[in-house]
Write a protein that binds this DNA or RNA. Sequence first.
DNA 1: TTTCTCTTACTGACGAGTAAGTAATGTGTG
DNA 2: CACACATTACTTACTCGTCAGTAAGAGAAA
Lengths: 234, 234
Amino acid sequence: MTDATPARSADAAPTRTPRPRRTRPATLERREEILRAAMRVFGSKGYHQGSLAEVAEQVGITHAGVLHHFGSKDRLLTEVLEFRDRVDVEHLEGQHIPGGLDLFRHLVKTAAINAERPGIVQAYTVLTGEAVTDGHPASAWVTERFTGLRADIAGALREVIEERRAAGDTDTDYELTDAALDLAASTIIGAMDGLQIQWLLDPEAVDLAESTAFAIEAILASTLAGARRPRPLD
Amino acid sequence: MTDATPARSADAAPTRTPRPRRTRPATLERREEILRAAMRVFGSKGYHQGSLAEVAEQVGITHAGVLHHFGSKDRLLTEVLEFRDRVDVEHLEGQHIPGGLDLFRHLVKTAAINAERPGIVQAYTVLTGEAVTDGHPASAWVTERFTGLRADIAGALREVIEERRAAGDTDTDYELTDAALDLAASTIIGAMDGLQIQWLLDPEAVDLAESTAFAIEAILASTLAGARRPRPLD
DNA sequence: TTTCTCTTACTGACGAGTAAGTAATGTGTG
DNA sequence: CACACATTACTTACTCGTCAGTAAGAGAAA
């Protein structure tokens, strides 16, 4: 039984360099094109309903060409998600990631910008919704994304409250638990996501920017008011 | 060009009655079984990813049997949605649909109940998320559902405010526009839906009942406080 | 001449819908 | 009441389409 694979290390001439070539710049661009196309397709049709053929067509190749670059549909999806993360971060490059009240202003501004690009919002919403199905390849990513967002927002909340305390605001001297901050953070994220769904389905009926701003202000006010705020349901 | 279809009305013996037989009770039960199975399947896998074969298997027949009853997968989905509507209404039978503050208490209680039945929540969330994809058969249903919910909640809000005015609460004598009520209504619905997503993905991280209650109280308080509430972002 | 990019061509699987047939369950007629 | 025959509730066995993934090779680049 002879080895069918060519002998590599054993007696290859030492003159032979291992020859790494790797990615040309044109190829990297190609891959980004594919990622962008995939984002459009998965965003409008969902992951399961979107096909590799459709992604391929948008960049003028065949579906096998896409598989050459990404190996499988699952891997394509995860690379799309990582790519989005990278792009989002680059977008903030130069500017620091805002904290404190600025984070909330940033969220409101983002909603206003998103109201002009339904495609992005749809992509995010579809993938997030799909991720709660059993065994979906994006569910880990979405879950971690939520975890990160909650931490960021809870942190910003803490900053705001501590700032006010430092300024001698006696309205804020209640117990400040992590749980309460997380609660507010989840609620803000939830409201933003839920409003996006309604807006996508019926843009006439919901003003994305305005309702997002309202939600954040309401939750912020309630959180800052702490335990002493009258609870309307009691 | 002769008519290939047998002459029906022209000279058929008047003795022939059209013979309607229709559905036996056992059949109706069978169809309900199928609808319940379909809800489970579409709820856990989504509409596109869930197959007729899987639905059929759960009631012990073949996928062709399902098609015999419902004609097509699309029709099955719409009948599932109509069935859910019917069941939900029956569930409230006897009790009046609550209005005013009771509606909000009802929403909070529903969230607490839902925290014990992730299947239902998942079904609702998956279908809603999928509905924002292009040309999805459930999008009309979901859109109308949101429209109805917004109207109900906005109406309840109006009731609450008018009650307080009647009681002489001067805190509520600001302009009361429909737009403001709809805004609050969308936000409450959005928060509930968004929190469900996070809870499904990470039940440890989010307390569905508590966060929903918090969201509703915060938005309610903000709305009742009207225009005079300090706006933290300004 | 090796490596990379991509195509053509194929496989295997799965899924919705159709067609034809079968067994059971009624229903109208004599 | 009995018989004939509609109608129902399915099954089996397809068709047709789609889609992910594979294999082999061609042309270009390095």
